[in-house]
Design a protein around this nucleic acid. Structure first.
Length: 593
RNA sequence: GCCUCAGUAGCUCAGUUGGAUAGAGCAACCGCCUUCUAAGCGGUGGGUCACAGGUUCGAAUCCUGUCUGGGGUACCA
């Protein structure tokens, strides 16, 4: 990247000028300087602000700038100094060099910033007790994009879905199906009705009725046998129904994830932890480490010793385990998996689980693991905006499922929308807008840019029609010409590119395009480092704007084949960058729109 | 009460460790299609960066306090 060249020269300059700048006395407390893009385009392409050195150097920023600039002069750069800023204008040879690299490199934006990372990325993880809702859509988009970005930074990433198939919620769904089934079979049993102020351990959704109907088809006789005067489900009925419910919901969830272009490498069952005795084991381990105690008939984990604000129950007074206990066993397994293969464990959780973080970290610390290895990426929740009204997730009957939303707006719009904003902010999902006015969705703007590029490349090889002479003309280029041109693409061959541009707006737009494409790698790194895919979404919109601007001031397909080919390299490079960036977001890059 | 996320243009949001005149999309208004996709481009209007102090040569950004909104604060999962 061009930026790296400037950075290297900057470091060399600071080193050679360190005497004049009094940097030696600072004992390594020299503030780090950054290369940035100036706000004002006429200042230059890149800038370094040396003001942070003012304190150490005990000099005014303009004076420092002059001294640092001397070091640059030695390397052939002549920065334009304004105040404490060194402004750099990138020369055409460097731009052409950068463009060539982007056009030729295997995968644009690819880097090795996370090459030592082996990440277990867990997200979505839901109960198999009902359909996934819109809120899950955010974790789908966020988690999968993050994984793709990490991989682009050369990390090894495993996508994992934790199936919460144990515990009381499974009993509740089974019991709900039981009553629905008995209702349908006309046994006289009735599905319970909620009472004000009382817990309602049943699932009222219509999908439960459908599941009951389906279950009846295979278990009609069994249901009659299980039924009894009190209509209380026997244990074997609950087991059979909850197994069925799990398989059925899980199949549905897997199908939906596939639709969303998301592949989980591992589907990890909570129930399997219990079955393998892992939950009992972890309790024994905690006991052995002396971090548990008994109180009020329950077994407690002294998590306050590890920074939590209160102790937590592991085994309830009725002898059953809390959710936390199984979750501790699960997370311990992550540390141990493949002989401690993973060095970064990331969980994506909704903000409603925020308070859960300290206890999980406490548990890992208590078990002797490094809690910093476990990183929770917290996402704020999604609000539904229906008919202009804010609807809190899950508190209304009119809850939109993720499947319904995908059917309505499509995977591309869903995924782009869900990652186009920082996960730190509550997302208002405007259902009416997403469903109706699709051109207000920025994803189409970006996809259109890709399609336009594809179209230009396509047209270059197709016969044209002369509207004046009313006759067909041969294609501007042949595939063979283009292949050999790309194959021998060198900065020298490209040197006439800028010269071929007739006007200044086109040159300015081209500079901007190349610099922005050159910066893609930087954005990918940043998105990975900050765990913020929205940076990529932003980037695609920025680049699309620059491309559309360029498109309007510079014609690509012109009569001269050489000029056409050189300009086509830009479009070719852009198409690759758009395609790659959209892929990192899990959004399709259509060739036609 | 405590913990946490947020408050930036009419709306939805960017703004990387504090730096140059605070940006984008949408909405509004005015222009641009006989040649590569007008799902596009150019232009105009629109700001007390919630508020008040503080630190600093310099604050949307850091600190303190206040206000507003979301989430959490279980022997639920």
């Amino acid at each position: 990247m061009i930026k790296d060249q400037i950075l290297q020269t900057l470091q060399a300059s600071l080193k050679s000028q360190s005497g004049k700048l009094n940097l030696e006395g600072a004992n390594g407390n020299v503030p780090r300087l950054n290369i940035e893009r100036p706000r004002q385009a006429d200042h230059g392409d890149y800038a370094v602000n040396v003001s942070p050195l003012a304190k150490v150097a005990r000099m005014a920023p303009p004076q420092i700038a002059a001294i640092v600039a001397e070091g640059f002069a030695q390397a052939g750069w002549t920065p334009n100094i304004i105040g404490g800023f060194l402004n750099f204008s990138v020369g055409e040879p460097q731009l052409i060099d950068a463009l060539t690299r982007i056009a030729m490199q295997d995968k644009p934006g690819r880097n090795e910033s996370m090459k030592d990372i082996r990440c277990l990325l867990e997200f979505v993880s839901a109960n198999p007790t009902g359909p996934l809702h819109i809120g899950h859509g955010r974790w789908v988009a966020l988690g999968d994009s993050l994984g793709r970005i990490f991989r682009h930074c050369d990390a090894q990433v495993t996508h994992e879905f934790y199936i919460n198939d144990a515990g009381s919620q499974m009993f509740n769904i089974a019991n709900s199906i039981w009553y629905r089934a008995l209702e349908i079979l006309g046994t006289g049993a009735k599905f319970p009705t909620p009472e004000e102020g009382k817990p309602f351990p049943f699932y009222p959704g219509d999908y439960v009725i459908e599941m009951a109907q389906e279950f009846i088809q295979t278990h009609r006789e069994a249901l009659f046998q299980w039924d009894n005067p009190a209509h209380v489900a026997p244990k074997e009925a609950i087991e059979a129904i909850s197994d069925y419910a799990k398989e059925s919901m899980l199949a549905q969830q897997r199908q939906l994830m596939e639709t969303c272009r998301l592949t989980f490498d591992v589907w990890y069952s909570e129930k399997s932890l219990h079955a393998a005795g892992r939950v009992v084991d972890v309790i024994e381990k905690l006991k052995a480490r002396g971090v548990t105690y008994e109180k009020d008939g329950a077994l407690w984990f002294a998590s306050t010793q590890f920074g939590d604000d209160q102790d937590r129950v592991l085994v309830k007074s009725d002898g059953s385990y809390t959710y936390l206990t199984a979750d501790i066993a699960y997370h311990e397994d992550k540390y141990a998996r493949n002989d401690g293969f993973y060095n970064l464990l990331i969980n994506i959780w909704g903000a409603d689980h925020h308070g859960y973080i300290p206890r999980m970290k406490a548990a890992m610390a208590a078990l002797g693991h490094n809690p910093d290895q476990l990183e929770i990426v917290l996402g704020q929740l999604v609000n539904l905006l229906i008919e202009g009204e804010r609807t809190r997730m899950g508190k209304r009957k009119k809850m939109l499922t993720l499947q319904e939303l995908v059917d309505e707006v499509g995977v591309d719009a869903l995924r782009f929308w869900m990652v186009s904003k920082s996960q730190d902010t509550t997302l208002d999902f405007n259902v009416d807008l997403a469903a109706s006015a699709s051109d207000e969705n920025p994803v189409f703007y970006v996809q259109y840019a890709h399609a336009r590029c594809a179209s230009i490349v396509r047209n270059a090889f197709q016969p044209r029609f002369d509207t004046v002479d009313k006759k067909e003309l041969p294609p501007l280029l042949t595939e063979a010409q283009w292949d050999s041109f790309l194959g021998s693409l060198t900065p020298d061959a490209m040197a006439t590119l800028f010269a071929s541009l007739e006007n200044d707006p086109a040159k300015a737009a081209l500079r901007e395009l190349i610099l922005k494409m050159d910066g893609f790698e930087d954005r990918v790194e940043e998105a990975a480092r900050l765990r913020s895919p929205h940076i990529i979404a932003r980037y695609t919109q920025d680049l699309a704007a620059d491309f559309h601007r360029f498109y309007n001031v510079c014609r690509i397909l012109v009569a001269d084949p050489q000029t056409t080919m050189m300009r086509l390299v830009i479009i070719y490079a852009l198409k690759r960058v758009f395609g790659q960036a959209l892929d990192l977001l899990g959004v399709s890059a259509p060739d036609k729109m």
